[in-house]
Amino acid sequence: MGRLDGKTAVITGGSQGIGLATVELFVAEGANVVVADLLAPEGEALCERLGAVCLFRKTDVTDEDQFKSLIEFAVERLGRIDCLFNNAGMLGQIGGIESMQVDRFDRVMVSHVRSVMLGMKHVAPHMKKQGFGSIINTGSISGIQAVSAYMDYSAAKAAVIHLTKCAAMELGEFSIRVNSVSPGQIATGMGKTGPEALQKAALLRELNKTRQPIPRSGLPEDIAFAALYLASDESSFVNGHDLVVDGGMIGGTGWTERQRMNAEFQNALNSAGPQSKSSN
């Protein structure tokens, strides 16, 4: 038996990366899934490969009418929505506060924060009516730690995490759980399509190997399994929680690097020689 047997899910940004891995895992665990994405060819091909348990709906999740239509489509076709995974998003811009492009800043906020708000807004009435549901939002460790190089993305993800907690306090009273998953460095092809996406993911797998205590890159499947837990009945008493999946990166400097830094510091002290005592 699968961990999601008989359950239904809507997954946004489901045509590639974390969303794709989650769609595949949810289907393998027995769920019926509606995939929402702007990448129609990829989404349609995915659902054709997975069969009748997977439906595709081209959706701009920043548009309220389209998100509302997506939820209505899922309820009509699946009968209910057990889980909504708000996963769609876009890359932020690299740079400091003085170089921020206002239009890009606005698009990043809309892509990550408005889309999550819209998803929760329009799925909540249906979940209230059925008396249960699990909403999962994609956060990031960038929303927990300040990442000045990706200032707009970092701020947007902080908002997603806090919006999740606020909604959890309201919707928990209706047996609707609202949680977020905050990935660390995950090797995906985000921002690319086709062969370029595969090349980017392969490059990131190599670059990310030593960026956290666990000596391998994070993979989309790592986040998919976290989402599976939050979508399943195993997490029935988990609400308002941000589940960090980062191989320990958020803990700070790793043991080996810290030992190296300590040794350098000690060597600097030793080379300075004995400290002279001041006389009274």
Rank of each mutant, 00 (worst) to 15 (best):
L198V: 07
V108Y: 02
R211Y: 09
A28M: 00
S142D: 15
K192V: 00
F56K: 07
K200W: 08
D103P: 11
H112D: 07
V102W: 11
G143M: 04
G51C: 05
G240Y: 05
A124M: 08
L204M: 05
P215T: 02
F85S: 01
M120Q: 04
P220V: 02
K68A: 12
R104T: 05
S232R: 11
G251T: 00
L50A: 10
R258Q: 12
I71N: 00
S271A: 14
I11D: 01
T164Q: 11
N32D: 10
V181Q: 13
Q212M: 03
Q145L: 09
G30K: 06
S99T: 10
E257A: 11
V108F: 00
F132W: 15
K157L: 01
E257S: 08
D152P: 11
Q275E: 12
L4C: 06
V147D: 15
M169I: 12
L39P: 07
H126R: 05
G14R: 09
S232D: 08
A231W: 00
T138C: 10
V110F: 05
R205C: 08
A74V: 01
L171E: 14
L198P: 13
P125L: 04
S276P: 05
D5E: 14
G273P: 11
T164F: 03
F73D: 03
N280P: 15
V33C: 10
A52Y: 08
K165H: 14
E24F: 02
C166T: 08
G14F: 04
I97N: 02
M120W: 04
E196Y: 09
P195L: 05
G254R: 00
F265T: 11
N87A: 03
D242T: 09
I94E: 07
V181P: 07
M100I: 14
I223V: 05
L39M: 13
G43Y: 09
N137P: 13
N267E: 15
G92F: 05
G240M: 12
A224M: 04
R211E: 14
P195T: 01
Y150D: 15
I97Q: 07
S111H: 02
G131P: 08
V147A: 09
H241P: 08
I161A: 05
S217F: 01
A45G: 05
S235M: 00
G247V: 00
A168W: 06
A124W: 04
M169E: 14
I186V: 10
I135W: 01
N262P: 02
E72G: 03
S278E: 14
L207Q: 14
G254T: 00
G133M: 00
A159M: 05
A21E: 01
G43D: 08
H122Q: 07
R80V: 07
I223T: 04
Q93Y: 02
R216H: 11
S15G: 14
A21F: 09
L91T: 09
S236N: 14
F105S: 06
N239A: 10
E264M: 12
K68C: 10
D222A: 03
A155V: 04
V238S: 14
T188H: 03
D242R: 02
A201V: 08
G43M: 11
V34W: 01
K157H: 01
F265Q: 12
